[in-house]
């Protein structure tokens, strides 16, 4: 553990207070969403170990919700895996964007596992590499801890909560993702592709198995045009 603790101390020194507070806030929010995830999974009839194990070894909110949603609805676990993997393909692009932030050697293993929409967004919003690194690792470690504790607590509470919809948790999940993608949707071309994808996915939902309509949304990419000038990330 010593080799983790020493870099942690330097991460803490590098983070400014405002950024640390924002990261803490997002960690807390992810903990709340984790609680809803645990509660929804157990409420959907799955044993507690399923959401808990998924959260530790997969650690990817959207794909975990999708996986549990498909399986709890009586869908095939194979379809759930395929849908989960397809939703996680975005991590390939994230990995390319933050590989220098993660660093080389052994750091690439924990650094890759800790990759989330949130800490990638935080890292890319920082000026210099040192700050980016601090934001990425602090966000990743914090979210991992809060997410897993949240899922466990929510799962334990979920056995007593029969209807999580009463608390509106089903509305919280899409709202969180919406907050995350909104900045990217300010780009006109991405927004057009996304809107076409949304129409296709919604139209397909009544007729196709869960997970497939979301994939069909990629049809929208036909309308995507990469911006002409090379884009400096978040500057």
């Amino acid at each position: 553990m010593v080799f983790i603790i020493k870099p942690m101390r330097s991460i803490w020194r590098t983070l400014d207070r405002g950024l640390a507070r924002d990261i803490a806030l997002v960690c807390l929010a992810d903990g709340v969403v984790g609680m809803s995830y645990g509660a929804i999974s157990v409420g959907g009839g799955l044993p507690l170990w399923v959401p808990v194990l998924l959260s530790i070894v997969v650690f990817a909110g959207a794909s975990q919700f999708l996986f549990v949603g498909i399986v709890a609805a009586g869908g095939s676990p194979i379809a759930a895996v395929i849908a989960g993997l397809l939703v996680n393909t975005r991590h390939v692009a994230f990995g390319l964007a933050v590989s220098d932030v993660i660093g080389g050697g052994w750091r690439r293993v924990p650094g890759s596992h800790l990759m989330t929409d949130e800490n990638v967004a935080f890292a890319l919003g920082q000026e210099d590499l040192k700050q980016r690194r601090a934001a990425y690792w602090a966000g990743g470690i914090g979210i991992f801890a809060c997410w897993n504790v949240g899922v466990l607590v929510g799962g334990l509470a979920g056995t007593m909560i029969t209807d999580t919809d009463v608390f509106g948790l089903d509305a919280a999940f899409p709202a969180v993702l919406l907050a995350l993608v909104l900045p990217a949707l300010r780009d006109r071309s991405t927004r057009t592709a996304a809107l076409v994808g949304v129409v296709v996915a919604l139209a397909a939902t009544p007729f196709l198995p869960a997970g497939v309509p979301v994939l069909l949304a990629l049809v929208g990419m036909v309308f995507y045009r990469a911006p002409k000038p090379a884009l400096e990330v978040s500057r």
């Binding site: 393909t89 692009a93 390319l96 949707l185 991405t190 949304v198 919604l202």
Partner: peptide, 30 residues
């Protein structure tokens, strides 16, 4: 990795996520 390929991959991820948001917000099952 070419810059434009990276942008395309990132946009595709956003399209997937947006569709996930829309279907999970507006639909329940079928």
């Amino acid at each position: 990795i070419p810059e434009r390929t990276q942008q395309f991959l990132a946009a595709a991820a956003i399209v997937l996520l947006t569709a996930l948001i829309a279907t999970s917000a507006l639909m329940d099952g079928h």
